[in-house]
């Protein structure tokens, strides 16, 4: 099966600065893939190369098997991009703007206008169809940006920080919408600063830092393999000879701290062992690791640090 996006040893240099140092990435068709990284990690450069905004120094990138340089007409026809930086054409109203965008991709005017109106309705912007972009709020502009990426109905969507500057309520609505269109079959490549966004939406994530992919996998697997979850149990009286050989743990003042990669599964086992040994449990706390911790552990910094 051909991958929706396939990147091989991709390098990009700006003068002597190496923005991408040989990236390899395969994104299967139908997946919701998150590319996580701090500012300047190479996310936007990677996306720029996939969509034709950035020239390649070496290596290759393919979209549904089409080389983004040699077969750019085919590769670009099946991708929609919502860039991180908001841009707007000041001359046209939203319906005209989206109709033109569809036209650039070869849609007939009538077909493009119908799709434009459908998207404006879906994004709650129907009443603004005759308004120009500059008159919209930040959240509305962001929605138009995503609508522009979708007007030619591309099977692959690339969203660069799609919820940046969007309030929490709208962000959750957008997450719902993106999850829905992914379920309907669209492959989505998402870059985000919001780890929660990646955890909630993505079935696969890759962490990129200083032009290199550091790790990739499902969020669950990364948390399990890299993260450090903890089960904390306060007991009435910890028997001196009692041992839990399967886990690493410490006991201080009847407080048990157990390291685990899978707290949801392990908690049941541990509690049943304690019950067997007649150890009375007074309090149980789970400290679950998350992608943010994984990110910090692998990169040595928080995602919002540049």
């Amino acid at each position: 099966m051909v991958n929706a996006i396939s990147i091989t040893d991709l390098k990009k240099k700006y003068g002597s600065f190496e923005a991408l140092k040989g990236i390899n990435l395969d994104i299967p068709e139908g997946s919701f893939f998150g590319l996580l990284g701090p500012n300047g990690a190479g996310k936007t450069t990677t996306i720029g190369i996939l969509t034709g905004l950035v020239n390649i120094t070496s290596g290759s990138a393919r979209i549904m098997g089409y080389d983004v340089v040699k077969e750019y007409k085919k590769s670009r026809a099946i991708v929609g991009i919502s860039p991180q930086e908001l841009n707007f054409d000041p001359f046209f109203t939203l319906d005209d703007l989206l109709t033109l965008q569809g036209g650039y991709y070869g849609m007939k005017p009538k077909e493009a206008r119908a799709k434009a109106m459908e998207l404006l309705k879906q994004f709650g912007l129907e009443s603004k169809s005759k308004v120009k972009m500059r008159q919209l709020s930040g959240g509305m502009k962001r929605r138009v940006q995503i609508a522009k990426a979708m007007v030619h109905d591309p099977p692959i969507l690339i969203l660069d920080e799609p919820t940046a500057g969007v309030d929490i309520e709208l962000r959750h609505l957008m997450w719902e919408y993106l999850a829905k269109i992914n379920k309907e079959g669209k492959t989505i490549l998402l870059t985000t600063h919001y780890i929660e966004e990646a955890e909630n939406l993505c079935d696969h994530v890759a962490i990129i830092d200083q032009g290199r992919i550091i790790t990739e996998g499902t969020p669950k697997a990364l948390i399990r393999d890299v993260g450090e979850s903890m089960i904390c149990i306060r007991v009435n009286d910890w028997p001196e000879k009692m041992e839990l050989p399967q886990w690493q743990y410490t006991v201080v003042d009847n407080q048990l701290h157990i390291q685990t990669s899978d707290p949801d599964t392990d908690i049941g086992h541990i509690l049943s062992i304690l019950a067997k040994e007649n150890v009375a449990v007074l309090e149980v706390k789970l400290k679950k690791s998350n992608l943010e911790e994984v990110f910090i552990k692998l990169t040595g910094k928080r995602i919002d640090e540049s």
Binding site: T51, G52, L53, Y72, K73, K74, R76, A77, V79, I81, P83, E85, N87, F88, D89, P90, Q101, Y104, Y105, G106, K148
Partner: peptide, 14 residues
């Protein structure tokens, strides 16, 4: 200047 050239550059136009 307003960066909307990006909307055109990402299309299949040569």
């Amino acid at each position: 200047f307003l960066r909307f050239i990006e909307d055109i550059l990402v299309t299949p136009l040569s």
